[in-house]
Write a protein that binds this DNA or RNA. Structure first.
Length: 367
DNA sequence: TCTGGGGTCCTAGGACCC
DNA sequence: TCTGGGGTCCTAGGACCC
């Protein structure tokens, strides 16, 4: 059996737990600070009951509820809480998987009373963090994840042989992970409406999802496969200097994170979008690895040159790196070592005095 | 009037190697 | 001159998730 933990309205719940004034109130967490020009990253259950949901433009949310409480997302806080929950779950001594910032899975093979363990998990999370989780238990991760959604918030749902058919019959197909978008629509168009319909036609989709678990949950979770930052500009931008400045800034943010995690990348990916060019992505892979922000930036400029756009109108852009490996400074050339010590000083200053204390001159065009 | 940001995985074609 | 087969790497894009 697999136990899936899904935190309830995670970001919003954390904010309410920290600030008692927000408790019991409709609240949204916005992905950035400008109240009216962002989307809902998380909505408290009080807000959800009014029809507000994540992904919705914040303006629409305020139209529904003018007195909505608003908090800007603080990723560091949520990541920290997530890691603490992961640590707590390690205490149950079962193979563990970190599925996302607010989802965790436990392999309960050999455990007798899965349901009482599920209760204990919920209890401990609430006792330690003052936020609730919903737990699903089933024979594989796909069904366990589905189960966790069925009685939110603060739910505990078991799918076993007895209620398998009944549960799948009343659950719409698009509730199933992977069926939320076009994939689900394809099946819906063929007349498959519920998970049970899918099971009858494609049992392997439901059955063959063992999930991946760490043998030893004492070890830290896996390292990331890519690191990216993107930004949607307040308006269309055509000034090449300003566009370059944004690419420089995003490269810097990506580089900082690589260095914090002691990683280097081989592949750099630049993403541009605008009404005329649509969304364009291109990448460059090289034999040499790097975590130097300027290096990442130069690669981006080369990628952009290859796209051969003449005065593109840019609305959004992003820098992403992949093919990540552990950094090994002994492999650096002398010239690179010099730059590394400069970068280290740079990171140290920003680490002590705050991000943006010292920055590349060109990025001042982004202010 | 365009509505964020950070990720993962998959596929298919082309280049290149043996 | 024409002929096979296997494999990796890279690129570009799509789909989905939170």
């Amino acid at each position: 059996m697999i136990l899936h933990v899904d935190m309830d309205a995670f970001f919003a719940s954390i904010e309410q737990a920290i600030n008692p004034r927000l408790k019991g109130k409709p609240l949204i967490v916005g992905s950035r600070g400008s109240k009216m020009h962002t989307v809902v990253c998380a909505a408290s259950y009080e807000a959800k009951h009014l029809g507000i949901h994540s992904g919705m433009p914040s303006r629409d949310a305020f139209n529904i509820c003018p007195n909505l409480e608003f908090v800007t997302a603080d990723q560091a806080k949520y990541i920290w809480t997530s890691e603490q929950i992961f640590e707590l779950l390690k205490g149950f001594n079962s193979p563990l998987n970190y599925a996302s910032i607010d989802e965790f899975q436990m392999d309960l093979t050999g455990i007798k009373n899965a349901v009482s363990l599920g209760k204990e998990v919920k209890l401990q999370i609430y006792a330690n963090f003052n936020i609730t989780a919903s737990v699903g238990i089933a024979k594989n991760w796909l069904l366990a994840k589905l189960a966790s959604k069925l009685n939110k918030p603060d739910g505990l749902t078991l799918i076993n042989d007895e209620n398998f058919e009944e549960t799948l019959r009343v659950t719409p197909l698009n509730k199933l992970c992977g069926m939320g978008g076009k994939n689900g629509q394809i099946f819906m168009n063929q007349g498959l409406k519920t998970c049970w319909d899918l099971y009858l036609n494609l049992p392997e989709f439901i059955n063959n999802n063992p999930g991946k678990f760490e043998e030893n949950p004492g070890k830290s979770s896996e390292s990331p496969k890519s690191v990216s930052h993107s930004y949607t500009l307040p308006r269309v931008e055509i000034n090449p200097r300003v566009i370059q400045a944004w690419i420089r800034l995003l490269s810097e943010m990506v580089g900082v994170r690589l260095r914090q995690q002691n990683l280097v990348c081989r592949t750099v990916n630049l993403y541009l979008s605008g009404s005329e060019i649509g969304s364009l992505g291109a990448q460059k892979t090289s034999q040499i690895t790097t975590n130097d922000s300027y290096e990442i930036y130069s690669k981006c400029l080369k990628i952009m040159a290859k796209m051969s756009l003449k005065r593109p109108k840019i609305r959004a852009l992003g820098v992403s790196v992949s093919q990540l490996n552990q950094a090994d400074s002994s492999l650096l050339l002398i010239e690179e070592k010099q730059r590394e010590s400069l970068t280290r000083a740079f990171d140290l200053i920003n680490g002590r005095f705050g991000e943006g204390t010292i920055y590349p001159a060109i990025t001042s065009f982004t202010r």
